[in-house]
Design a protein around this nucleic acid. Structure first.
Lengths: 228, 228
DNA sequence: GTCTATATAGCGATAGAC
DNA sequence: GTCTATCGCTATATAGAC
């Protein structure tokens, strides 16, 4: 339950005398990755209770005890799978590019990237996982929140502050404004997709939604050219 | 799985000759209600898999077979519980009152009522239920969406249209604007509460959030007094 | 119609062979 | 380190007594 549950219980203190090099565990890297990948896929589509250790083992092409030897138990495997998912998901430089672009274009880039990031099948699966009542008391939703949504919002707030400093935006609380922009971009479409009703928007509807988002945001916060 | 799973499997075709009146099932109304109530409470707090038929029976004060005799199986009971929950949840007249009030006050009334409606413990529980992967392919999320969020948004759109007609608001697409207002009111706080991290906002933070919501909405859509 | 007791099955986790 | 076979537990659903 702590940090690294994949550490083995008791390495027998081999002082590297009987074997010259690498007697520890030089073999299992591929299988461990396969297990983690299978776990990510199955957990995100079927939930924690919805998938059994047998299914994970079968999907990964190994036996069940191999799973238990690499990860301690089901919960530890789940934690590792979610961690791996979060780490491979944060946008690398999109905010730098958006920062350099003109205001409206930069905002459009941000909401486009954000919407794509949260409506992918895996992202929706993880969102559903975080909603499961079993995790409500665990520290995992908090970890996910800090590793995902919080970072994005901070980056957006920083970008907005730059445009406030340059005199293009009139915003008192950039943190709140960043939150508002992202909530607008999510929109009801995201909620529907999380529930499973109302599938993906087609390209036209998506473009209309995101442009409408940026339009409203700028109507509220853009400094208007002073009346003559 | 279809419409009315609570219908009994085979009524033995008693032609009302041996007994004069009411031999069918005149007794179980109280127990049926108790079972439904217990199911609503437990399902919404612990999820579908998180609660067993034994727990429901114990919570309702009846035996397990009584549950099975009233509802066919676990899934049918679940469907009935969610139906009962949705039917008893829509706000009665709050939009009429908001319609008569001045613009800013009306919007504040709406977002206050909306926020209270979606952040109650039971509402959060149902939201989490709708996210569960097992229901993603079922028609239930769609039913919930049409019975809940969709109606609220329609009512808000109607209210906004009135203020557009009276010249107070400048909105092209009132449906989109209604959706935007509600998404803003939900905010990130709702998402955090659904996940289970970051509990309820205190009174001050809540007031600040909702006033900020209405402020931004009006900055974007209120007709501004023409410059002199 | 309702309850106590039980059948059946699936899951998580483990023991022992290679 | 990996696999096959198995234990222990829990949950859904049912059979028989009052």
């Amino acid at each position: 339950m702590s940090q690294a549950p994949s550490r083995r219980p008791a390495t027998p203190a081999r002082p590297a005398t009987s074997k010259p090099a690498g007697p520890g565990r030089p073999k299992d890297l591929g299988k461990r990755a396969a297990i983690l990948d299978a776990a990510k896929r199955l957990f995100s589509t079927q939930g924690y209770d919805g998938v059994s250790m047998d299914q994970i083992a079968a999907e990964a092409g190994v036996s069940k005890l191999t799973v238990y030897s690499h990860f301690g138990d089901k919960e530890a495997l789940f934690v590792e799978a979610v961690k791996a998912h979060c780490e491979a998901r944060l946008p690398p430089e999109m905010f730098e590019a958006a920062d350099a672009a003109p205001l409206r274009e930069g905002l459009l880039q941000i909401v486009r990237a954000f919407y794509a990031m949260i409506t992918g099948p895996e992202a929706l699966g993880v969102h559903r996982l975080m909603c499961s009542p079993q995790l409500a008391e665990s520290p995992m939703p908090r970890l996910f929140w800090d590793a995902g949504p919080r970072r994005v919002q901070e980056a957006v707030a920083t970008m907005l502050q730059h445009h406030v400093d340059s005199g293009e935006l009139d915003i008192d609380d950039v943190q709140r404004a960043a939150s508002q922009l992202l909530c607008l971009a999510k929109g009801e479409a995201h909620a529907q997709q999380v529930f499973g009703c109302g599938g993906e928007l087609d390209a036209d509807a998506l473009d209309s939604h995101l442009r409408g988002t940026v339009d409203m945001f700028l109507r509220a916060y853009a400094v208007r050219s002073k009346a003559p």
